[in-house]
Simulated scan of single mutants.
Amino acid sequence: MFISPMLLETAHSPFSHSNYIFEPKIDGHRLLFSQQDGKIRLYTRHETDCTLQYPELLHTLDDDIILDGEVACTDPDTGSVDYEMVMNRFQAKKADKIQHLTTIQPVTYVVFDVLQYKGQDLRKMPLMKRKEILSGIRMPNKYFGVIPFVEAAGEALFTQLEAQELEGMVGKKQNSTYESRRSSSWQKVINWTYVEVFITGYRKEEFGWLTSVITESGRLRPTGIIELGVPPKAKGAFYGVSQQLVTGEDKNFVHLEPRIRAKVKTRNWTKKGMLRSPAFVEFVV
């Protein structure tokens, strides 16, 4: 059974509030665990069935249940949560590869809510009551965990998460019911990394600016495409200047001299040295 998940709005900055609890934001992908009549199905937030991808999670609980949480991988070398690893797990399709990855890149299912238990729909209960029920449920194996939270002290928690270079924080109203939509009752605060880049081209069709950084050897290295956060005024200013900087083009892009600099915010760097979901902040002059 699939339930459309409750989604987060974005808070502009870390905050504290006596009516909220605050949790670490886990850098994985959303996962709903549904056990009905002893049969387990796993779903992404978009209702993609990913039951076969995570065999280590296919262990029954003591009764029918629907859990909401995040599935993530930890890099065994660094001990840090690794988004690319969990995406590698998610994209694996062949049974032998999935089984192999289970041994070398096991996932953890970090549970933060319970939506149904023992035949009862819990979504109309306040969050703290659902948390109380969740705390009393025995998880089936070491691949399951329940996320910790603090009450009121969001800014102090965010400072700790920044120091650990974790993805961010989620603030949730203590009395919030579970709504299958985006809601201001749950708000995320991302621990952004800020980077200055050169804009070295732009996409011909749909919007996108090519980015690069200068390496220690003084060469330009591509770092991905900015698609997010660019207001109309910035787009207008860019296209007004960029036509004087064109050096060539190919099928998909117009290429520019590296003269325009921009500050971007990004979730982090990929292992291949690319910006992950970069968003424009401002031009650098």
Rank of each mutant, 00 (worst) to 15 (best):
Q35K: 05
L8I: 07
P14N: 12
M6R: 07
E56T: 04
D82Q: 07
G79D: 10
A72K: 02
E9H: 14
Y83M: 11
L61H: 02
L67E: 00
Y43V: 10
R89N: 13
R30H: 12
R45G: 07
S34C: 15
L42F: 12
D62N: 05
D49E: 14
D62Y: 00
L8Y: 04
Q36Y: 05
L67W: 02
L67G: 01
L7Q: 13
D37A: 09
G79I: 10
L57R: 02
S16F: 08
V86C: 05
F15C: 03
Q53A: 08
K39N: 12
L7E: 11
T74W: 04
Y83Q: 08
F33G: 03
L7G: 08
T78K: 09
I26E: 08
I40D: 07
G79Y: 10
D37V: 00
T10D: 13
K39Y: 05
A92W: 10
R30D: 05
Q91T: 10
D37K: 09
E9P: 03
A72D: 01
L52W: 00
A11M: 09
I3A: 09
Q53Y: 01
M85W: 10
K93L: 14
D37M: 03
V86P: 03
S18Y: 03
Q91D: 13
S80L: 13
F90G: 00
L52F: 07
P5Q: 06
R45Y: 05
D63L: 00
A92Y: 11
E23P: 06
I66T: 04
D63R: 04
F90Q: 14
D63P: 00
M6P: 03
D37L: 03
T10R: 12
H12D: 15
Q53L: 02
M85N: 11
D82W: 03
R41E: 13
R89V: 13
V81I: 15
C73S: 08
T48G: 01
G69K: 00
R89Y: 12
D62R: 02
L8K: 05
E23L: 09
Q35A: 08
D75K: 07
N88K: 15
P76W: 13
T74D: 00
Y20K: 00
